[in-house]
């Protein structure tokens, strides 16, 4: 009951938070020089034509008024048109956002497996070989740019070895796309029984997931290692040891104590990678949401950018709510 009330309260807060996020991003984007009317009509357009289009698009109105109009539309579920794709932003994002989500979710799952595993193993044996390897790995993953790693992987596994498919999208272009249900190609192809698409999607996912997974495992590894170290050095773990509890129980208790920190890092990485995966998306021709937003910024196409901001803000708010609920579940002291 108490939890439900808490969730409701949190959801109520989402409204002012979203307003604030929209407001700030709207004005920041307006600060970027560049006139969409000029770009849409091309370099040979007359001044009159430009002015006419500006008036049609409402660009001649004061900025605050433009914001109010935009806000009104958003509340009715209309995120505007993208002039580049000439399609509603909402439908563009409905296909592109799941692509990014699928990539990022799988990558982070891989990152969690690597980071958590190495982190725990290296914390349990502070003088072991795993610790040394993990330390080098943490250093490397922080220093190597993800797009570079992606290019190396493509060179090795596609160009040299030919194990991976061409880095052109989410599945082979030779296949007929499956019916869109959830937006995730893996899930949709399984539901509709399209195993050819499923296998193709899997092989296309391998390299980008490996890239993002390896890079993001670094921070998770570091966070796991340091919070496990702290937990293992804590008084209550020393006490558990001196009560003769077996090693696996010690490990479990320490992990339990370290978990809130690790979850925080994972949630931050998740929200961050939605946008930060853009370079990897470009390298693999992924057609994800990040790519879409960046194209929007470069071409003064305002609506896709704002649409992306709204989508990722909602996602972040959901992620943070889940994290708070996990804290609730993990630590009795927060249940007051």
């Amino acid at each position: 009951m108490q939890i439900l009330r808490y969730i409701l309260k949190r959801l109520l807060f989402v409204i002012p938070q979203m307003l604030g996020i929209l407001f700030i991003s709207f004005f920041l984007i307006k600060l970027i020089p560049g006139d969409p009317a000029v770009l849409m009509l091309g370099p040979n357009a007359t001044a009159d034509a430009v002015a006419k289009l500006r008036a049609e698009m409402g660009l001649d109105l004061p900025v605050f008024q433009q914001f109010m109009i935009y806000l009104g539309n958003v509340l009715q579920g209309d995120l505007g048109m993208s002039w580049q794709s000439a399609r509603p932003v909402l439908s563009d994002l409905m296909t592109r956002f799941p692509a990014t989500l699928e990539l990022v979710t799988l990558s982070l799952l891989l990152a969690v497996v690597i980071g958590l595993g190495l982190g725990i193993a290296s914390a349990m044996r502070p003088r072991g070989a795993v610790r040394k390897a993990a330390n080098y790995y943490g250093l490397l993953s922080g220093a190597i740019p993800d797009f570079w790693l992606a290019l190396v992987f493509i060179f090795v596994f596609y160009t040299l070895l030919g194990w991976a498919p061409a880095p052109l999208g989410r599945y082979s272009i030779m296949l007929i796309p499956p019916q869109t249900i959830t937006g995730s190609v893996l899930v949709d192809s399984l539901i509709t029984g399209r195993f050819d698409v499923f296998m193709s999607a899997l092989s296309h996912l391998a390299l980008p997931v490996l890239t993002l997974g390896l890079v993001n495992a670094g921070p998770i590894l570091k966070a796991t290692q340091s919070s496990m170290d702290r937990a293992l050095g804590s008084d209550f773990i020393a006490y558990a040891r001196m009560n003769g509890l077996p090693r696996r129980m010690i490990r479990r208790q320490a992990l339990r104590a370290a978990l809130p920190n690790i979850i925080t890092i994972i949630s931050v990485l998740y929200s961050f990678t939605i946008g930060a995966a853009v370079l990897v998306e470009i390298v693999f021709g992924w057609g994800g949401a990040g790519q879409y937003a960046v194209a929007g910024v470069l071409n003064s196409d305002l609506n896709p950018v704002l649409g992306f901001v709204i989508f990722s803000a909602v996602l972040s708010l959901i992620v943070y709510l889940i994290v708070d609920l996990l804290y609730f579940a993990l630590d009795p002291r927060t249940r007051g």
């Binding site: 008084d235 209550f236 006490y239 040891r241 001196m242 009560n243 003769g244 208790q253 104590a257 630590d331």
Partner: peptide, 23 residues
């Protein structure tokens, strides 16, 4: 010789030594 079974320890700061997330 096993701790707790053979030699048991009573610690000085029990509120810090008990695991906060276990009953």
């Amino acid at each position: 010789v096993r701790p707790a079974k053979d030699i048991a320890l009573i610690v000085s700061n029990p509120r810090r030594e008990l695991n906060p997330v276990l009953t």
